[in-house]
Every structure is written in C-alpha cells, then in structure tokens.
Design a protein around this nucleic acid. Structure first.
Length: 863
RNA sequence: GCCCGAAUGGCGGAACUGGUAGACGCGCCGGACUCAAAAUCCGGUGGUGGUGACACCGUGUGGGUUCGAUUCCCUCUUCGGGCACCA
C-alpha cells in the first residue's frame, strides 16, 4: 500500500471502476425493493456552485447508503434547460441560447462526474430537447380538451422602450433593467391551468404527508389559503342598482363596518371615476403600481372616496365606498368590508382618512381605545354594540349573521381560496412553444397531435426587443389545421415550471419516443426521496403535485403524490457585491474578485473590485445564484484537494437542512482527516494481516474499544438512515478514529480489534467519501468492491456495559457524577447519590423535599 | 406587509423525547520533530474569580411554565427563504 494519500489518482481509479462495472445504471427488477432518490435538477447556468454540490452530495450519500442496505436504487440526473438566463447570455455574447445552454451542460456534466456522484447517466434528459418538450405540448392539449387549460387576460410588465415583456426580476424599482424606462402594465391574453380545481385535494392530502417537513406542509397550506367565512352583499343604487359583494372571515364584526374598500380594477371604481378626474388619476396610479405582491403589500396604504355609498346589509345604514390600493382584485370579490376596530389594516386606513372606528367585540373585558392599535383588538370575543348579535361568541355570531344574510338574499357561508390559477404563457423565445395556431377564420386552433412537436428554432439570438419568434417567418407562418388558410403560430412559450412539473416521471422512461410515460413508471415511481432547496417549498412542489393529479385523472399514473419523502436542504449563502449604473442597471461582481478591508480612519468595512481598484456596494448575504453572481465554484476545491475532501467538507460544515453561510475555513481540516484515515489504514496493513477476533477472551480495554466502534456504527446508521444529519455522522467517525489512534496495540487480539474499528470507519464513511474508501477497503484485504458490500450490522453484544455513569444534581444544578451498575434500582442510586461528598456539601443540613430519578441518567435532589 | 425558518465560545457547529451546554472540526496558544520552514504529532483553549480543589455567570431580548428550559409558551429584535414572470 502506498504511504501517501494522492486523491487525483485514487479518485480517477475508483470512478473508472464504477464506469466499467456500470455500477449506477439502474435496472427494473420487480423482485427487489426499489429506491428512487432524486435531487432537483439544475438549471445549466454554466458552472456548478456550492448549493449544487451540497444538494447532490446529500442525494449521493442517501443513494449509496440505501444501495448498501439492499435496495435497487435509481439516481438520475437531467437539465432544467429552458429559461431566462440563456436569453440574457445570448444578448450579452451574441450566442444563440441553444448553443450556450448545450455548452454549459457539457461542462457541468463533467463537473458532476468529477465529484463522483453515483448517477445513472443513461437516463439523462434536457427539457430543451424536442423529444422531451413534445410531451409538454401533448399534455397541454389534453388539458385544453378537458378545460383544465383555458385562455384569459393577465397583467404583464411592459417595457415601452424595448417594446418587450419583462419578468418581475427584470423590473428594478419600477424601471426596466436594461432601458431604465418606467414599466407599464399591460393586459394580454394568456393560457392558464386550473390548479384551483385541485385546491381542496392539494390541501387535504398534506395532512397525511408525514414524510414531508412540517414547515413545507404549513407553507403550502397557507399558500392554498382556505378561508371559511361569509360572503356578504352591500346593496347600492349605482347605475341600475346592484350589490357590492365582499368576503370576510370575521362576519361577527359586521356591525362594526364603517366603510367598504374596492380594488382599483373593481367595476364600481370605474363607474365612480366617470367625470371624476381626481379619482381617475388615483385609479390610474394604483393600476400603474407594482405587480409584485410583496411590493404591493409593503407600499403605503392609500385610498380615495368614490362618493358612492352602499347600504349595510343588516342595519341599512349608508356605508361609504372607497378605492384602496391594498385591496386585491384577484382575491374574493375584489372588495372588503372595513371594520377598523378589529382589523389592523382597516384601523390604519381609518386613522389616516379619519373614518369612524366602532368597537363591536369585547375580548374578556380588555379595554378598547381608538388611540392606538393593540394586538388583542383582532382576537375573538363576544359581540357588543351589535343589536341582536350582542352576547354571541364567534361561531354563534358568524352563524347568525350568515343565516340573516341568507334570508335577505345578501350572502351566505362561503369558502374562499388564496390560490390562483397558474398562468403559463411567457412572451419569450427560450421555452417550450405553446402548440396553438391562430387563424383569422377559426380562431385559436390546437396543433393536431400528429404534428407534434412544434419545434423551437435553435439558431435565433434575442436582442432584447421582443420575442424573436415574432420575426422568424419560418416558424411563424403556417396553414390552419382546420381550414388550410394562411395562419400564424402562437409565439408565446410555456413557463419553465411546466418543464419541471413532470420530469421526475420521465426518468423512468426517458428513451420512449412513442409515449410520454410507460409501464416502467409504475416500478420506479413515486419518488422515494426528493431532495432540493427550501426555496422550492411552494411553487415547484405544488405545481408538480397538481400535474401529477391531472395525470392520475387521465389514468396515466396510479398515484397522485409524486414525492413520498421530501428533504429540503438549506440554502448556501454568500455576500453579494454590485454597482448601480446611472441608467439604473445593476452589475454584480463575484466575491472572489472583491477584496475586503477596513478603512484606516473610519474602521468601516470597504469592498473593492480588484480589477479596477474601485469600491463596490454590498447587497447582504443571500443565496448563491447566477443572477447575483455570488456563486463559489467548487472546482477550485476539487482541483486542490479532490472530490472526497470537497464532499466531506460541505457535509461536515452544517446539518444539511440548515442555511449555510459560505466560508472555506475548515477545508484543511476535512483534508487532514482523510489523510489521517489513510495513514491509520496504512500503518495497520503495513504490519501484515490480522487474525480473526476471539470475542470470548477480551480485556476491559478491548471491550471498550469494540463498544465504541459498534456505537459509532449504530450512530452513523441512524444519523444517515433516520436523522439525515450527515454532519454528526462524520463527527462520530472522527471520534472513533481519534480513539483508534490512541489505542495501544500490544497483542494480536488488539490488532483484530483495530481492524474491525477501521473497517467500520471506512465502510460508514463510504457514502460520503466514496473514492478513498473504495481504495482503503481493498487495502484492508477485501476482494469485493466496497460499493457492492452490504452495510455492516451492529453487534449488540459489543454494546453491552456493566456500569453506567449518572449525573447528580442538587436543586437542578450539577454537583457530582456517580457510577452505578447497569440496572441498579432507585434505592441504590439514591443512596449512592446522597453519599457523594459534594452532594452532601450542597444539600447541607436542609431537609430533602424530593428526589427525582431518571433511570440510567440523572438524580436531582431538591432541598 | 403577509407566510415559513433561524439565532449557542474567536468561527462552523453538538446536545435526537424537558435531564451533564459547548461533542467534532477550524482558529489560536504552548510543546515535540527540523539548521529552518511546511507537514506531522502531543497538550491547552466559553467568561469572571481563585495557587488550587472549586465557585459564580453564560445558549439573540424581556417575561412565563417546571425539581430542572438551548429545548415548551408569550413578547420583541436581527438575519435568511417565499410572495405567483429568477429557477
């Protein structure tokens, strides 16, 4: 065995072995239990970043672990290859998005291979390939047939200079990122998918998904946002008269209503604006406002009276109608009843515009003052100042109000959802074409199945001025499939979330050119373990759940939940550095090109771009991403220390579920540990083979060493298999190796014990650092490659111990440790604790009031 | 603004079901080896007081429950993720 640890040669050799053996090519085998482990596929942005390495290492650890535990594993990989960055790169470099994307895939695939991930590359897919996206188109047509896909107008960001639609990300402070032009909003026709039809099932099913993190289930439930409340109507005489409908979950506060507020897009607002230039201007201002909900909600609440009023449905009192910039047209009926006394937003609004505040709920007699908002004002309580409802509690009051409204034909109990239908039309080139043909005679005609796929041209280069497909005659001009007349292709493409809503199914049958899915889906799916960033907790995962439900309804798959178990890895963060040009355009600089120092006089931190010596601004510590240019290339680590060190380091840095702020301090430690492991095995095998262990003749020291080895095996098995805390698994093996290094080897039996401990260390580390352990396992004298070995079993005999240490507290404070026999009864433990000198000192002469004994662990003496 | 998380030594983190706070690693300090350095090995390392045994303080803030709270409840602060066209 070679004395020096040389990662480059060792890693190449191990990878060569796995390639030769086709170790990771998965085969359907109905006789074996399958394990489908999937990491969210990457966007091919150019190079891997640490977030990718973290994600794929977690997946690889679990895959290799399950494989050694006897499962037939599948771990595939593909590319989420459509999207905006390719168009941006095209504009910057003049290269077609297709070429840029495919080049990136080549590079990133080589990087993934160099990290030793056990991926089945025979199933590789890219969403930008016609053989993949034709099935997007095919399924979209099925959705159209079933009315699940439909056409409706939607609002987009319009850049008036570039005459193009911008993504939310491309709008910075209300201006276009390239032009600096003030962004307008436009309404255009778009295709929507009726995810709301599945809202109830998507919500209810979450309750049984115990293998998903609770926080994800809570986030999805809140996103779907089921609200039980009352729809209530305020009759009015505007126009020919009508009813202004609002929705509330607090019908018990109905008698506290002092105004109504409608969205700027509400018909009543439009009516009131006629001949009212000030209101017209306000409505225009609201409509111009931000499209993004976060900005909308954060902006100052503004309103303006319409001059109209409606009648309170119970009291008949006149209620003024306002336009409010915080009212969303997309939720409920686009109008709210204003109860300032019991809703914080309404309170703020009423204060600002001097509207009356009328308390109608008494919360356990707590005082009410209109001077300032108190947190309990929105709590449930009993109705007061509410006429017939006085004295009723929340459920009784809501029921009574609903009943009364029902009798008047002005409302009823209703369930409202926050979830909206999914708009999938994008006015972009680099995406999956929507298979529709526009004919002046026949309208929007679906492309017939036999003409699929509608192939996206790959040689166009966008220039920022609109969708290049609009200028591509060969793509644009077609004959109408219905009447044969000259017609025009739809140039909108699909949201890239469509691509990622079913790729996990396609890995089962990526080679099938005749059908979207086939029988192999039934063997491999659902995904046993899905792993990806917490940032996908809502959108991607919800869309995939919806898509799978549609496929089930079609009879294409036999299940409705695609991911049996979900693991959400924490984000890898890094500082962002940027400069803002006068045009408003923002340029990001990679942290690797920035030098930090402290200003000599002010001691304030200064960030300087090395290339030009000029200052850059810091944008805080955020997720590593292409768009913020704050990724760290893992290749630097792989080149310097090898893939095993890179993998070990990122797994040891933090628990996989936790956010990780990037720092490479500690990489040396990971490298040092692998070297120590190598050296330990080297020294052991240099002394020649060790004899089989004789378990019947062990000294106490030998027993202790064995106990630690098997405790470590048990801990690693549990940490990887159940807890998914790979960091603590590594720490446990480090402790074992420390103990082995200190263990005196006097006899042949000692050598056998060390041999066993080293085997446990090498095998348990193998999912994490597969290359070096592959080599070490062979050096330890095994003929079978480590990848094909079964996981080791804990020897329960080795875990046994005659005594146990117990902690003794006096009044909850640690005062002593005592050692007692395993299985000692409470009286013995109590006597031993009370006999301890330090315990006597602290309990003194005071009477013992209570003794709490936790068997095998702790004694607390209360005096 | 709303929803979801997080906060523990100089740093990353451990403490799994309410029971020894700081495992493991980094860094730092001291020592061995070396002409020297690197590498490696050994020892120390939360703060304060004490020669010492040891004692007191200590898990973002303020409160609460408990024999006992990093862990449970309430409040606030800061940071991160999401908010429907970034993926």
């Amino acid at each position: 065995m070679q004395e020096r640890y040389e990662p480059a040669a060792i890693e190449a050799e191990a990878r060569h072995y796995w390639d030769q053996q086709h170790s990771f090519e998965a085969k359907e085998d109905p006789g074996r239990e399958k394990y489908y482990c999937l990491c969210m596929f990457p966007y091919p942005s150019g190079r891997l970043h640490m977030g990718h390495v973290r994600n794929y290492t977690i997946g690889d650890v679990l895959t290799r672990f399950m494989r050694m535990n006897g499962r037939n594993v599948l771990q595939p990989m593909g590319w989420d290859a459509f999207g905006l960055p390719a168009e941006n790169a095209a504009m910057a470099n003049g290269v077609p998005p297709a070429k840029w994307t495919l080049d990136n895939i080549v590079h990133m695939k080589a990087q993934l291979k160099s990290l030793g991930f056990g991926l089945d590359w025979s199933r590789e897919l890219a969403t930008c390939a016609p053989k993949y996206y034709r099935w997007n188109q095919w399924l979209f047509l099925r959705m159209l047939e079933k009315g699940v896909a439909y056409l409706k107008t939607g609002v987009v960001n319009w850049d008036p200079i570039d005459k193009t639609v911008l993504a939310n990300e491309q709008v910075i402070d209300g201006r276009g990122w390239r032009t600096g032009a003030i962004i307008e909003k436009r309404e255009i026709p778009m295709y929507y998918l009726k995810i709301t039809a599945y809202a109830e099932d998507l919500l209810d099913a979450l309750q049984d998904m115990h293998e998903w993190p609770e926080r994800v289930r809570i986030m999805q439930a809140n996103w779907i946002g089921r609200s039980e409340g009352v729809r209530l109507g305020f009759p009015h005489d505007v126009g020919d008269g009508g009813v202004l409908y609002t929705f509330t979950t607090r019908a018990d506060t109905i008698m506290g209503t002092t105004f109504c507020a409608v969205a700027a897009e509400h018909p009543l607002a439009a009516h009131a604006a006629l001949g009212n230039p000030k209101l017209t201007a306000f409505i225009e201002e609201c409509k111009r406002g931000p499209a993004v909900e976060a900005e909308l909600a954060a902006q100052e609440k503004k309103g303006m009276p319409t001059g109209l009023s409606a009648r309170h449905p119970i009291s008949g009192e006149a209620i003024p109608v306002w336009v409010g910039n915080y009212v969303l047209m997309s939720y409920g009926d686009g109008a709210v009843m204003g109860v300032p006394a019991h809703d914080e937003r309404d309170f703020e609004f009423a204060k600002k515009y001097k509207l009356p505040i009328k308390p109608v709920i008494d919360v356990e007699g707590r005082p009410y003052s209109t001077a300032a908002w108190q947190s309990w004002y929105s709590d449930h309580g009993r109705c007061v100042n509410s006429g017939a409802y006085d004295g009723l509690d929340y459920p009784a009051a809501v029921a009574a109000v609903a009943r009364d409204l029902n009798a008047k034909g002005l409302g009823e109990k209703r369930t409202t959802w926050r979830l909206r239908d999914w708009g999938i039309s994008r006015q972009r080139y680099w995406g999956c074409p929507i298979p529709i043909i526009h004919c002046t005679g026949c309208g929007a005609v679906p492309v017939p199945d036999e003409q699929l796929p509608v192939v996206l041209p790959t040689d166009l280069v966008p220039d920022g001025s609109g969708n290049p497909l609009l200028k591509d005659a060969a793509f644009l001009n077609v004959k109408c499939p219905k009447c044969g007349a000259d017609a025009r292709r739809e140039t909108d493409t699909m949201d890239t979330f469509v691509d990622s809503s079913w790729y996990f199914l396609r890995f089962a049958c990526a080679d099938n050119d005749h059908a979207m899915l086939d029988h192999r889906v039934q063997y491999w799916l659902p995904v046993d373990q899905y792993i990806g960033g917490i940032e996908h907790a809502i959108l991607h995962l919800l869309y995939a759940r919806f898509w799978t439900r549609f496929l089930k309804d079609m009879g294409a798959v036999p299940f409705k939940e695609p991911f049996a178990r979900l693991f959400t890895q924490g984000m890898v963060l890094n500082e962002v550095f940027f400069r803002k040009a006068e045009s408003g355009r923002v340029l990001y600089f990679n942290p690797a090109d920035v030098t930090l120092s402290a200003d000599a006089t002010t001691q304030k931190r200064v960030a300087v771009l090395r290339a030009d010596g000029q200052e850059v601004e810091s944008g805080g510590v955020v997720t590593m991403s292409k768009s913020k240019n704050n990724g760290v290339d893992p290749q630097l680590l792989v080149d310097e220390f090898g893939a095993d060190t890179a993998r070990l380091f990122i797994m040891f840095a933090a628990p996989p579920e936790q956010t990780l702020e990037w720092s490479d301090e500690g990489v040396q430690g990971a490298f040092r540990f692998i070297k120590r492991l190598w050296k330990a095995v080297f020294e052991h095998v240099s002394r020649g083979p060790s004899a089989p262990l004789d378990k019947s003749a062990l000294t106490e020291a030998q027993r202790a060493m064995r106990r630690q080895a098997h405790q470590t095996l048990a801990k690693v098995t549990d940490d990887i298999g159940r807890r998914r805390t790979i960091n603590t698994a590594i720490a446990a093996v480090m402790e074992l190796l420390n103990a082995v290094a200190k263990y005196p080897q006097a006899s042949a039996q000692d050598r056998s014990i060390v041999n066993e401990a080293l085997e446990i260390a090498v095998l348990t580390l193998s999912p994490i650092i597969p290359h070096v352990t592959h080599a070490l396992w062979r050096e330890l004298g095994h003929g079978v490659a480590l990848i094909d070995e079964p996981w080791l079993l804990v020897d329960s005999e080795a875990l046994q111990s005659a005594t146990v240490q117990i902690v003794v507290q006096v009044n909850g404070r640690l005062r002593a440790h005592i050692t007692v026999a395993v299985g000692a009864d409470d009286a013995e433990v109590r006597a031993a604790a009370l006999a301890d000198a330090n315990v006597k000192k602290f309990s003194g002469t005071s009477a013992i009031r209570k003794v709490i004994i936790v068997p095998g662990k702790l004694v607390n003496i209360v005096v």
